[in-house]
Amino acid sequence: MAIYREKNFAERRDAATTAKKALLEKYKAKPAADDPAVLARQAERKAILEARAIREAEKEKLRQERLAREAAEKAEREAKAEAERLAAEAAAQEEASRREAEESDRIARVLADDAERKAKRDARYAARKSRVKRMPPSANYG
């Protein structure tokens, strides 16, 4: 089993210097801009970016179509709901008119019945009065 040993300053400095040299060598080994591998990699990246742009444009087109379709469906639903609301209002208005007509008929019948009862009562009253005004024949001999 290895025992952990802390590195001293010189070892850390040497490790940092080695790492810097490795980075410098890697940078120096970098191919030039006109290297065919670099150009191929750039062309590949450009093709990827163009393909991504095409996909994004298609996605946007599909999104716009979906939004337009949803807006049309929403407008259709709202128009249908408005038509149903208007039909319900018309039915309610018709029902109210029918009830009002029934109420008017009932009131007219009640008033006609009251007028008929009053006419009968008045006729009875007039008949009674006419009987009272006539004096019986025996009343003159008294």
Rank of each mutant, 00 (worst) to 15 (best):
E65C: 03
Y141S: 11
R55C: 06
I48G: 06
K20W: 05
I107M: 07
E11I: 00
A81L: 13
K61W: 04
R98S: 03
A37F: 04
E11H: 03
A51F: 05
D34E: 15
F9L: 14
E94H: 06
K74H: 05
A71S: 12
E102F: 00
S130N: 13
R121Y: 06
K80E: 09
E78K: 09
A71M: 06
E78M: 06
A33E: 14
K118L: 12
E73M: 08
V110R: 15
A57I: 01
A57F: 00
A53S: 14
A53G: 09
A19V: 07
P137Q: 12
R121I: 05
A112R: 02
A33G: 05
R121W: 07
E100N: 07
P136W: 07
A123E: 15
E50A: 10
E95Q: 13
K46I: 02
A33C: 05
R134G: 08
A92F: 10
R99S: 07
A119P: 00
R134K: 14
R117C: 04
K20S: 12
A16D: 07
R69M: 09
A29K: 04
Y27T: 06
K28W: 03
M135A: 14
E25R: 06
E50P: 00
E25D: 15
A32W: 03
A87S: 14
S97G: 05
R45Y: 10
R66G: 01
M135K: 15
I3W: 05
D113T: 04
A29E: 12
R85H: 11
R13F: 09
D113A: 07
L23A: 12
R69S: 09
K46N: 10
I48M: 12
E82V: 03
T17R: 15
E100R: 03
E82C: 05
R109Q: 06
A47T: 07
E60G: 01
A15W: 03
N8G: 12
E102A: 02
A123W: 04
L39G: 03
S138R: 11
I107H: 04
D122E: 15
Y125M: 09
E102L: 02
I3Q: 13
E76F: 02
K118Q: 12
K74D: 04
R5M: 08
R77T: 04
L39N: 06
N8Q: 09
M1G: 15
L23P: 00
L86F: 09
K118H: 10
P36N: 03
L86W: 09
A96D: 11
R55A: 15
E89A: 13
I107V: 11
